[in-house]
């Protein structure tokens, strides 16, 4: 594991405003298009359908007319873990997934993965997907493939990379311009860029000047399953109490922010 360099360069993360998210699905398509995600004729079985970014529909469980729904986009959480490791990273037997301390991004290397699926068992967010099938693009559609992301073969696990290749491209541009570092807006994930409602904000969580820094401190901001100690880097914002409560498990008597 690449823990050689412990100094933290960046800690990329996201704040998703659930008040603004309309569940339109644009982030999902932008992600699939950016990351060469394969598609099958029948994708209605959501348990073998690869969607790095998946928009969940949450219901408040009340009856008509008090029913309420909320959409929750779920990329990979890029957990840091309380013990310095993500749930999935420490379990991978072949170091096909790794935590990069310079970016805070959990990588997945498809050519290293041999498909044991232990990481999927470890991830409570169902953010990891297995390639049960050979990816097939209908004739002509392989032209759509983005050269910055390698298509995956059958038998390996894949997941959201926070569009890491976009970071690589931004760095390339910076180097070519004689710079060492990139500006915040030079590197944005495909979903962030695509969101028509501007519900997703992406940036360095440690950068006090960036919007994500102040937003993550907002009292209405929460993370998914925080209590498990996964320490995710994706934050959610909602003004609705039931939505915030749905983000984690609570015993009946517990208040939402324990």
């Amino acid at each position: 594991m690449s823990k050689g360099s412990k100094h933290k360069d960046k800690k990329f993360g996201m704040v998703i405003d659930l008040d603004k998210c309309t569940g339109c699905g644009a982030c999902m398509v932008a992600c699939m298009s950016e990351n060469n995600v394969p598609f099958k004729e029948n994708e209605s079985n959501k348990l073998d359908s690869i969607t790095w970014m998946r928009v969940y529909k949450l219901e408040n469980g009340k009856s008509f007319p008090d029913a309420d729904i909320c959409f929750l986009p779920r990329p990979c959480m890029h957990c840091e873990g309380d013990h310095g490791h993500a749930p999935c990273v420490s379990v991978c037997p072949a170091i096909a997934t790794d935590y990069d301390h310079k970016t805070g991004i959990v990588s997945q290397i498809y050519t290293r993965c041999f498909g044991c699926r232990y990481c999927m068992a470890a991830c409570p967010y169902h953010a990891r997907y297995f390639n049960w099938w050979d990816p097939v693009w209908p004739e002509g559609m392989e032209k759509l493939l983005n050269p910055n992301v390698s298509p995956r073969m059958r038998g390996v696990v894949e997941k959201c990379s926070f569009c890491h290749h976009r970071y690589q491209l931004a760095l390339d541009k910076a180097y070519a311009d004689g710079r060492d570092k990139i500006e915040e807006d030079e590197y944005q994930t495909a979903c962030t860029q695509a969101c028509p409602a501007n519900a997703i904000i992406f940036g360095d969580l440690d950068n006090k000047k960036h919007a994500v820094y102040s937003l993550k401190k907002n009292p209405n901001t929460f993370r998914l399953l925080e209590r498990l100690g996964t320490n995710p880097k994706v934050y959610y914002h909602s003004s609705r109490e039931w939505v915030r409560r749905a983000g984690d498990n609570y015993l009946k008597h517990e208040t939402t922010k324990a």
Binding site: S90, C92, F114, C116, M153, G155, V156
Partner: peptide, 26 residues
């Protein structure tokens, strides 16, 4: 049979992640 890429299964030895229980198992 269980692994998705049987031809790569030796990676578990060669590229061993000593923190993984599965490595220890293997």
């Amino acid at each position: 049979i269980d692994v998705g890429q049987p031809l790569r299964s030796w990676f578990i030895f060669w590229h061993a992640n000593v923190h993984s229980m599965l490595t220890e198992v293997a």
